[in-house]
């Protein structure tokens, strides 16, 4: 029987309330939202918080909206809401691609985008999606809020830039013209973490790729960007050869670990194939040629 170790529990009535509880308690306090990463970790004693601060009542942290030249997503927005959002499907279709294959329907009813990013599991999908889209996150603490790019957000496996008395409150994704995005994943069975997955975004102007973002899941100790492949794509014209070359670079640059989901050479192979496929679909979407 798996049961978490004894823990105290309180419900936050406001964001300020949650931050002040975190501040008062120190490192033993943890925020809980969907709980679908934290509760399994607590059962296995991989996490042993002394106090859980439940933020599920903070409805003000649950939204998906277009504001200026950004999409802003509240940290408590659940996977099912990301999956069903027509705004995201239209502007950032990579989200729906990814969400269709994240866990399973009951888990998607609970898990949140904030929790997914803060868990910082290298095999998690939304981290790669947000990296490819060059998102920033808003982190709120006792001294106010700061905005951090995802490259600085992931500081190591299961480690983020969120400090002890801080909460991730929002994900911001820049909207730029000529955008296309897509996600490709191979998993062992429905609902599993990826053997490997790739999120790609391209921004195309006048037949030239102005910028590209490639996020890799389960292909390194943390969520990785395929930066060499991104450089190759910049200022080039989209083509099958280019995407294949970018795939080769991603497969060389990633650093997967052998585990129960597969050996290193297989994962590198997937990195190449999935990068190519994701770029192909992202580009077709940017050029509105998707079949």
């Amino acid at each position: 029987m798996q049961t978490p170790a004894p823990v105290e529990y309180e419900r936050a009535a406001s964001l300020e309330d949650a931050i002040s509880s975190l501040q008062g308690r120190g490192p033993g306090a943890r925020i809980i939202a969907g709980g679908h990463s934290l509760i399994p970790m607590m059962k296995l004693r991989l996490a042993t918080p002394e106090l859980l601060i439940d933020i599920n009542d903070l409805a003000e942290l649950s939204y998906i909206r277009e504001q200026g030249d950004e999409i802003r997503i509240g940290a408590l927005t659940r996977h099912v809401e990301l999956l069903q959002s027509d705004l995201l499907a239209e502007r950032l279709p990579v989200f729906r691609d990814a969400e269709e294959l994240i866990a399973d329907p009951p888990v998607r009813n609970r898990g949140t985008i904030g929790g997914s990013l803060c868990q910082a599991d290298a095999a998690e999908d939304l981290s790669a999606v947000c990296s490819a889209l060059k998102a920033t996150v808003v982190i709120r603490g006792p001294e106010g809020q700061r905005v951090v790019g995802l490259d600085e957000f992931y500081v190591g496996p299961f480690m983020t830039a969120v400090g002890e008395a801080e909460i991730l409150t929002e994900v911001r994704i820049p909207l730029r013209p000529g955008a296309g995005s897509a996600h490709e994943k191979v998993e062992r069975r429905a609902g599993d973490f990826a053997i490997a997955a790739v999120a790609a975004a391209v921004w195309i102007d006048g037949g030239t790729i102005v910028d590209a973002g490639i996020g890799l899941s389960a292909l390194g100790p943390t969520t990785m960007r395929a930066t060499h492949a991104e450089e190759l794509l910049r200022a080039s014209s989209p083509s099958e050869e280019l995407f294949a070359q970018a795939g080769t670079m991603a497969s060389e640059d990633c650093s997967p670990l052998a585990d129960s989901r597969g050996p290193v050479d297989y994962k590198r192979h997937l990195a190449g194939v999935l990068t190519k496929r994701a770029l192909r679909r992202a580009s077709a979407r940017a050029l509105k040629q998707e079949t």
Partner: peptide, 11 residues
């Protein structure tokens, strides 16, 4: 639907 093994009763 909710997987009740992965929610605390308190929540």
């Amino acid at each position: 639907p909710l997987k009740s093994c992965t929610a605390l009763a308190a929540m």
